[in-house]
């Protein structure tokens, strides 16, 4: 993969505070960021979080050739609201707004609308690999000549989702997290961190994942010792890298697009080689290499 440089980034995330089974994001005053009242008044928390974060990252950058978003579960609150209204109103006289806003590509679409961006606009919704898929697409866009590519992720906590995930046993290791991070990627930038490689897998057992990590590092002409910091959401990485690992999900909680938070952390660090190793619930495994 051709390296892509992160020329700007933004984040709305937890400050590490645990509230019961969740780690809610610390949210900004959305009115300050999303100034279009007509669009804002219909937005759920999920959409506001994503749109605000995306707008922060866009800043004054022009020539946006792609907007690529990722989410594990999409606009849950609007989805729940609409299902509830179907039951309560017995399929009659339903408000269309939650249905419209529940579409997975709402944040990407609203960013296009607010900024008049007519370019490529796609949304990935593949469990613990949603953000990684978006990054791969973004890197391909840059390789194909896109000037600036906005890529980001959003997921939200709701009461229903917390209760269902607790019952499924998904919150045993970490509280449920949420948040949004966006990144502006470009082919060239001085002194900016670069995403150099991304790899995704499904259903690996620990020994297979360990082998995958080794060959991933080698493929990038590095030795395991060359990795300065490992942002980890996987016990496999902790065993391999020991003291060099930082458990990023202790800071943001567990959710499908938590690796977007890890990538944002990586941009804040001053390390030559940062490896993000993640495992989403034994289902999905992913690797992201960030270099300076």
């Amino acid at each position: 993969m051709q390296p892509v440089f992160i020329i700007n980034s933004s984040s709305i995330a937890s400050d590490g505070t645990v509230a019961g089974l969740t780690m809610p994001a610390v949210e900004p005053d959305y009115k300050e960021i999303i100034t279009d009242a007509t669009l804002r008044r219909r937005m759920s928390r999920f959409v506001k979080m994503g749109v605000a974060c995306g707008l922060e990252c866009l800043g004054q950058t022009s020539d946006i050739d792609a907007v690529i978003t990722a989410t594990g579960l999409g606009c849950l609150s609007d989805t729940e609201k609409f299902i509830e209204s179907i039951v309560v109103n017995n399929e009659r006289l339903l408000n269309p707004t939650p249905f419209i806003q529940s579409t997975f590509n709402t944040v990407g679409g609203q960013l296009a609308l607010l900024k008049g961006i007519h370019s490529y606009n796609v949304t990935y919704v593949h469990r613990g690999l949603s953000f990684e898929s978006a990054l791969i697409d973004a890197a391909l866009q840059v390789a194909d000549g896109a000037r600036n590519v906005l890529v980001g992720a959003i997921d939200e906590i709701t009461v229903a989702s917390t209760d269902a995930q607790r019952r499924m046993g998904l919150l045993k290791n970490y509280p449920l997290g949420e948040g949004s991070q966006f990144f502006m990627l470009a082919a060239k930038a001085d002194a900016a961190p670069a995403v150099c490689d991304v790899e995704t897998h499904t259903g690996l057992i620990n020994s297979e994942f360990a082998a995958v990590i080794e060959s991933f590092v080698q493929r990038n002409n590095l030795r395991l010792d060359d990795i300065d910091c490992v942002l980890s959401g996987s016990s496999v990485a902790e065993k391999m890298f020991g003291d060099k690992t930082v458990d990023f999900k202790k800071q943001c909680g567990e959710y499908q697009t938590a690796t977007a938070f890890a990538l944002w952390k990586a941009t804040q660090m001053n390390c030559a080689n940062v490896l993000i190793v993640n495992q989403y619930q034994q289902i999905n495994q992913s690797l992201i290499l960030v270099r300076r």
């Binding site: 007509t38 219909r42 006289l93 408000n95 269309p96 707004t97 419209i100």
Partner: peptide, 17 residues
């Protein structure tokens, strides 16, 4: 007020409900 076609649908619901 700058309302749009989605608001029109919501107003239709106000009238009926």
């Amino acid at each position: 007020l700058g309302l749009d076609s989605i608001d029109a649908l919501e107003i239709i619901l106000i009238l009926e409900r």
